[in-house]
Design a protein around this nucleic acid. Structure first.
Lengths: 336, 336
DNA sequence: ACACCTGGCGCAATCGATTACATTGATTTC
DNA sequence: GAAATCAATGTAATCGATTGCGCCAGGTGT
C-alpha cells in the first residue's frame, strides 16, 4: 500500500517515452516536440510526479539553494534583510535556508552545510564565524562561495556588503551637537565586533570634527543585548559627572538603557538625549519614540544575493559595497 | 587544478580498503575492526573528506532535516520557539531549516520542500497554510510528516502542540477584575486566526464567570501588527464611552496601542490598564513594562520536535498537547 | 541521386554513498 | 575433526535524475 512516490520512470512509462525525454521535457521544453511535451505534462499530472531534488542535486552538482547565517534570529533587525535576500533569491530560482549561528556551538557544522553540497553558498550576517570555517577549502576544492552582509571579517578576500556605519555614527553625533550637546557619551557594542569598531570610529571622528573631547569614562561597554543596555544604565547612573547625551550602538540596548533610567527617575529626553542605531520596528513606537540611524535593510539583502550569484558564476564582484545610512529624528533627543 | 572534492572512494584508496568499509567505519564504527577504523579516520583527515549529504540522502531516502514554517520571521515571538526546536533537533542529529511562509506567495513551493525529499517533515507555526499543501499526499505517497505548533488547523488529523490560549486570556481578565476593573475591552488578532478565536473565547468565558458584560463596541479588530495597535488606539480614542481596561491579543499590538494613546495624552496605566499576550523580550523593558501572558516558548519547540520525530518513526503521537500559560504582572495595569 | 544536416529521441553512464549479499579466514561447537 | 558460526571485508546493485553519445528519419544542398 505505501508504495513509493512516482519517479521519472513512472512518468516515462505513462507517457510512452524514455526517462531522458521526460527530463528534457521538464527542464528544456524547447528540446522536445510539442506533442511529447504535452503528453509528458499530462503524465506528470496523472502520476502526481514531483522532481526529487536530492537526485537532481546529486547529478547536477548544484542545489540552487543558499544558506544565510544569522547571529541571532531573535533580533528583529535581521528579518528585513532576510526578506531582501529571499526576494532576490526567489527571482533567481533559489531557495533560502536560514541558520542561526548561535546554537551551533561547535561551529564545525556551519560550513559543512556547503561542503556537504546542501547549499551552493553562504551569506553570513555574522562577522565572527569560527576560524575553522573560513579556511575550509582543503584539497583543491573550489572555495565555497561566501558573502558577508552587515558584518564582515577583514583580510579574507571575501566580498562584503555593508552599511555606512561610520557615516551613520557621525550623523548621530552631528545631530546631538546641532541640538547644543557637547557632553556626549557612547555605549559600545560587543568587543571585537566590526560594527562596534566602525560605529566607535565614526563617533570619535565626529567628535573630533566638532573639537569635542571623547571622555574615557563616558564610553560604556555593551554587547547589543537589551540586558547590556540595562547594565549600562546602571553604570551611567553611577557616574559622578554624567554626559548630557548618549549615542548607543543599537536600538535594543537603547530600550534597556532608557527603561532602566526611567525606573530610577531619569527621563529621556528630559534629562538626557539618546540616539541609537538600527531603526528596528518598535523604535518608532517606543516611549519616547527613538531617534536612530536607519539602514536600507531590504536593499542590503538584495545586493548581498546579487553578489553571491555573481561570485558563484565565476565573475568578480565588488569586494566592498557600502550602502548609506540616514538619521531618523524622533523624540528621544532634544535641544539643550 | 580545481579537481573535485574527495569522495568516499578517495578515502578508500588512501586507507587501502573498499568504499563500503569506509562507509561502515564512518556510520557504524562497531562494524569494523579497530585497526581499519583508525586507518580510515586517518585517511579522512589526509584527504579532507566530508560526506556528501546529497548522495547519502538519495540512498538513505532520508535527510535528517526538518523544515520549520514561520509566518513571520520578523516577529520576535518565534525565535525562542525556534531555539527550542533546534535544541531538540540537534540532539537527535537533525538539521533545522527555517522558511518564512509569507514570501512564498504562490504557496505551492511549501510542501514541495518535503515532496522533493529535501526535508523529512515540517513543523508549522502557521495555521493558515494554503489549501493545496495539506492534501498534498497523492498517489499512494506516504503522508508527509507535519506538526503544528502554536497555531493549528482543525479537522486535518495533524498533531499539534499549543499554548493554553483560552486559559491565558482568562488569567488576564481575572487579573483586571481583581484590580477592580469591570469595564473591559478586547483587541482581537486577525480574523480567522485560531489564536484570535481562542483568546476571544477565553476573554468571553472569563467575563461571563465574573458576570460582566462583553460590549460589542469594546471589541476592536486588530491583526497582531504594531500598526494595527496604532489604529486600534485611534478607534479607542473615538469611543464615546471608553473601557477602563483592555486585554490585547498580543504584545506587539500593545506597543502600537500604548504609544499612540501616549501621543494623544492618554497614559497607561494611569488612564487605562492594559494586559497583553506573548511576553516577548521587550515587554519587560517597554515603558510602562507590560503586564502580559507568558508562554513556555522554548518548551513548545522541544515538544513539537519530539512529536515530529514520533510521527516520523511511525508511532502515534498525542494529537493535541496543551502547554500552560502564566500571567506576568508588571506596570501596565493598576488598581482602580 | 548522394552526401550532409538536424530535430527528436533512446541508451547507458554517471553523480557519491549505502547496503544486501557473498566471501574468507578464524573460532566455536558437538 | 567436521560442521557450524561469526567477524571483517569486498562486490555490485541501488537511490532518481541528468546528459553525452549516437541512431533514425526526414529535409537540404548541389
Amino acid at each position: 500500500m505505501p508504495n513509493r512516490p512516482p519517479t521519472i520512470r513512472d512518468v516515462a512509462r505513462a507517457a510512452n517515452v524514455s526517462a531522458a525525454t521526460v527530463s528534457r521535457a521538464l527542464s528544456f521544453p524547447g528540446k522536445v516536440s510539442e506533442a511529447t511535451r504535452l503528453s509528458v505534462l499530462r503524465a506528470v499530472q496523472e502520476t502526481g510526479y514531483a522532481v526529487n531534488q536530492v537526485a537532481r542535486s546529486l547529478r547536477r552538482r548544484t542545489t540552487n539553494t543558499i544558506d544565510v547565517l544569522v547571529p541571532n534570529i531573535g533580533n528583529q533587525f535581521f528579518s528585513r534583510i532576510l526578506a531582501g535576500i529571499e526576494w532576490a533569491a526567489s527571482r533567481a530560482g533559489y531557495t533560502v535556508l536560514i541558520s542561526d549561528t548561535r546554537p551551533l556551538t561547535g561551529g564545525g557544522m556551519l560550513m559543512d552545510f556547503v561542503r556537504n553540497n546542501r547549499a551552493d553558498g553562504l551569506i553570513s550576517l555574522d562577522g565572527v564565524l569560527p576560524r575553522q570555517i573560513l579556511p575550509a577549502a582543503p584539497a583543491g576544492r573550489r572555495t565555497p562561495t561566501l558573502v558577508f552582509a552587515c558584518e564582515w571579517q577583514d583580510g579574507l578576500g571575501v566580498p562584503s556588503v555593508r552599511f555606512d556605519n561610520e557615516g551613520g555614527a557621525m550623523l548621530a553625533v552631528d545631530h546631538l551637537v546641532s541640538l547644543g550637546h557637547a557632553r556626549i557619551g557612547h555605549l559600545l557594542g560587543p568587543a571585537g565586533n566590526v560594527l562596534t569598531d566602525a560605529r566607535l570610529a565614526g563617533f570619535t571622528a565626529a567628535m573630533a570634527n566638532h573639537a569635542l573631547p571623547v571622555r574615557e569614562d563616558w564610553i560604556l561597554q555593551g554587547d547589543f543585548t537589551l540586558d547590556s543596555g540595562v547594565k549600562a544604565a546602571r553604570a551611567w547612573l553611577d557616574l559622578a559627572d554624567r554626559p548630557g547625551a548618549m549615542f548607543l550602538a543599537n536600538d535594543e540596548m537603547a530600550f534597556g538603557f532608557i527603561s532602566e533610567l526611567h525606573r530610577h527617575g531619569v527621563e529621556v529626553p528630559r534629562d538626557l538625549s539618546v540616539v541609537a542605531f538600527d531603526d528596528i520596528d518598535i523604535a518608532e513606537r517606543y516611549i519616547p519614540a527613538l531617534t536612530t540611524v536607519h539602514q536600507p535593510r531590504h536593499e542590503i539583502g538584495e545586493v548581498a544575493f546579487a553578489t553571491f550569484l555573481k561570485t558563484f558564476n565565476g565573475e568578480v564582484p565588488e569586494m566592498v559595497r557600502t550602502l548609506p545610512a540616514t538619521l531618523i529624528v524622533r523624540e528621544s533627543t532634544r535641544q539643550v
